[in-house]
């Protein structure tokens, strides 16, 4: 019979070996796993062209009839071609202004949505420069 020598195990201090810190899920897989989809994203919902979308801050009361109030956040897409009836950001005397664009034949009007403000009319020869088309507004009621 072969002789075997047995040594006592050396009991020394435990050596700490770092483990991977990534968590591995154990246990039963959730039955919902196959149905998980990305959360809804407001960015995706409100912004269709990332590179041409800008945020601007509405000032004053000229568009209250359209539901745009002082300090509302407007989402503006510059890549869109403005059509009659769109709310647009236009350049008037070098300033940016938000108004509704109305085209009647040759006549182009920037229409405020507040009877206390005057329409801005563009007669022939005067070129209206549209900066972008307002696609949505964001109103905040509670800072959270």
């Amino acid at each position: 019979m072969q002789q075997s020598i047995l040594f006592p195990a050396l009991v020394s201090q435990a050596i700490r070996i770092p483990l991977f810190s990534y968590k591995v899920a154990a246990g039963f897989p959730s039955p919902a796993d196959d149905y998980i989809e990305g959360r809804l994203s407001l960015d995706e919902h409100l912004i269709h062209h990332r590179d041409s979308t800008f945020f601007v801050r509405a000032k004053g009361n000229s568009m209250v009839g359209a539901g745009i109030f002082d300090n509302d956040l407007l989402i503006v897409d510059k890549s869109l071609t403005p059509a009659s009836g769109d709310i647009v950001i236009a350049v008037v005397d070098g300033d940016l202004t938000v108004k509704r664009l109305i085209k009647r034949g040759e006549q182009v009007i920037l229409k405020p949505e507040n009877h206390r403000f005057k329409e801005i009319e563009f007669k022939d020869g005067q070129e209206l420069q549209v900066w972008g088309v307002v696609t949505s507004t964001v109103k905040t009621f509670h800072k959270g």
């Binding site: 800008f54 945020f55 601007v56 801050r57 509405a58 000032k59 004053g60 950001i89 940016l96 202004t97």
Partner: peptide, 13 residues
């Protein structure tokens, strides 16, 4: 910083 700071957005009237 018109496009990167919420507090510095362009203002429209």
């Amino acid at each position: 910083c018109y496009t990167t700071e919420w507090s510095e957005l362009p203002e429209v009237w």
